[in-house]
Design a protein around this nucleic acid. Structure first.
Lengths: 142, 142
DNA sequence: TTCTATGCAAAGACTTTGCATGCTG
DNA sequence: CAGCATGCAAAGTCTTTGCATAGAA
């Protein structure tokens, strides 16, 4: 088998459709970022995405990575996660769900929304309305 | 009344005792940071703390602010919050509780632990154990 | 005195911005 | 062709680090 670093990519077609459906012009670089990002449920940093995009032979600048990720985030194509202060992670899963965060390894794992029973949410402060609930379960290696 | 910026401070005695109880040497600067931080339940950034410490006439360098906050955090005197990626907030309330986060204003508000009913927490990934659960309810201004 | 804390400035990590060039429609 | 996207490098933020000096026990 192939000994080089090869990862599955989301099909080009699929990414193009996805971008268009969100009103994002499907340029070369954005599609490549999308192919990496939407390959599977995962949590990648901007740097990791840049690496992987480079690894598939595409050339995208760091600035474009950030521009693209911010655009995707605004348009609801990805969810931006901030767990520790160091860096942001981009999560292709945009449907409601939560996360395990391993404080020792930094690893993030998805938790399906229905695995956490959140009853009786408190009333938001006056003049505000619920937008989203994030549950982060910090775990440590045993 | 006093027109200058004056805020209540935690009593010096109280802060000294608190630090000692956590095995932290109660130096001049640490006590001043503590007086600002432990004045009331709040969420301050490193910069805001520096500002307020300066405002009470104490002179503390930025490096010491960060060193002190990191130390306090390690020793469990404060809880470090990372909400958006921009900066960290330090929360003097270390008992379990959750937060409202206003995505428009950046404002953080405490939620008592018992105001959120979290039943049926999922099992942590193999080889890990629960450490803490954070619930962040994002709200937007209406 | 002996070890730890502090200050200052420089270094570092991550992210954003400005501007000229290139691609999209 | 008009306008948005991209690349590059520089600028910006927040935070950490190194080293000499000052303070605590």
């Amino acid at each position: 088998m192939d000994t080089s670093i090869s990862r599955s990519l989301a099909p080009r077609e699929h990414v193009v459709t996805l971008l268009e459906r969100h009103g994002v012009t499907a340029t070369q670089q954005r599609v490549e970022v999308g192919q990496v990002l939407f390959a599977c449920p995962q949590h990648l940093s901007a740097d990791q995405i840049l690496e992987r995009v480079m690894a598939i032979g595409a050339r995208v600048s760091k600035a474009t990575i950030y521009n693209t990720l911010n655009l995707f985030s605004e348009r609801g194509l990805v969810r931006t996660l901030t767990i520790d202060g160091d860096r942001q992670f981009y999560d292709p899963t945009t449907t409601p769900h939560h996360h395990f965060y391993n404080v020792d390894t930094g690893e993030l794992t998805d938790i399906p929304a229905d695995a956490v029973a959140l009853s009786a949410l408190p009333t938001p402060p006056a003049g505000t309305a619920h937008e989203r609930v994030d549950v982060i379960i910090r775990v440590r290696s045993t």
